[in-house]
């Protein structure tokens, strides 16, 4: 039972990790909390639903198109809301947090207007779980976990070994210095918004595949995503991934001990304890 719950936790944590990675990456570069991230995640899931069910495309191209359009939405949020606020009124992190909260409301209500309040399902048959060592997992969940791992590796490689990655890291460390050194920081910020939104979209699709796509899925996940990011150390993408796995596993294991209604509370309690011991998070630099 414990092994099974750990397996279920890895499935949940894997999806959560993608979202946490996206949010952490963005925070590291833009230095404020993007409160619309959860609703961007939901929008990504709905866009993939649109391509998959409404237009009848296979799942993979639907997911890719969903990510592409969500990436564009991320760029639009930056260009239309964040950048003008920063440039015209020199908005600080708190103002931007509240502004993105407004964006979140707009996205959620647009979703309700377009798709209605009923949950939606992708055009994918429900699969039966198979035994994989001590774990029970469906082929689609296994694929989702493998894709999550692959994406995380790709992000690591992007950040560590590509010119773009170096520019992102330089901009995140000191945007003024990066600009002086000739880095087109605006372009870096735009790309970070796009990558972060694409990751949110992918996490949204994976959540939808595990249950259903629903207009509140983003806002309900947001607290858990924040908890993962904080636990791992704000602005540390790898810490966010570890935080997500810890939270996913904690929630599932506590459910198997008949503490289901407290599973979120237990995860937050654990976060509190970790922050008491390591105030900057597990992997803070």
């Amino acid at each position: 039972m414990l092994a099974l719950s750990i397996g279920f936790g890895i499935i949940t944590g894997g999806v959560l990790a993608l979202a946490a990675l996206g949010l952490s990456l963005l925070f590291r570069t833009v230095k404020f909390i993007n409160f619309s991230f959860g609703d961007v995640l939901a929008l990504g899931a709905y866009l993939a639903f649109f391509f998959n069910v409404t237009l009848g495309l296979p799942l993979l191209p639907s997911v890719l198109l969903g990510m592409l359009f969500t990436g564009i939405v991320g760029m639009v949020i930056h260009k239309v809301v964040v950048k003008p606020l920063k440039e015209t009124v020199k908005a600080g992190p708190l103002t931007l947090l509240i502004a993105t909260m407004g964006v979140a409301f707009i996205i959620r209500n647009l979703i309700l207007i377009v798709w209605g309040p009923e949950p939606k399902m992708y055009n994918v048959a429900t699969q039966e779980a198979m035994k994989l060592g001590p774990f029970l997992i469906t082929p689609i969940q296994l694929t989702a976990i493998l894709i999550s791992v692959l994406i995380m590796v790709l992000i690591y490689l992007l950040l560590q070994y590509t010119k773009m990655g170096k520019m992102i890291r330089a901009t995140a460390d000191n945007i003024d210095l990066a600009r002086i050194r000739g880095i087109r920081t605006e372009s870096v910020v735009v790309w970070t918004w796009i990558i972060s939104s694409c990751l949110a979209s992918l996490a949204g699709v994976m959540l939808g595949l595990m249950g259903a796509v629903d207009s509140h899925m983003g806002i309900e996940m947001l607290l858990v995503i924040f908890a993962s990011v904080i636990m791992g150390g704000i602005g540390n993408p790898y810490g966010a991934v570890a935080g997500a796995m810890i939270i996913g596993i904690t929630m599932e294991v506590s459910s198997s001990f008949a503490l289901s209604e407290y599973k979120s509370a237990i995860a937050y309690l654990l976060m509190g304890v970790i922050l008491l011991l390591r105030p900057k998070g597990l992997f803070a630099r």
């Binding site: 279920f8 499935i11 595990m210 509140h216 198997s256 289901s260 599973k263």
Partner: peptide, 11 residues
């Protein structure tokens, strides 16, 4: 409104 009820179902 949680994303997983697998452990609850097993219980």
């Amino acid at each position: 409104r949680q994303t997983s009820y697998r452990s609850e179902l097993l219980s």
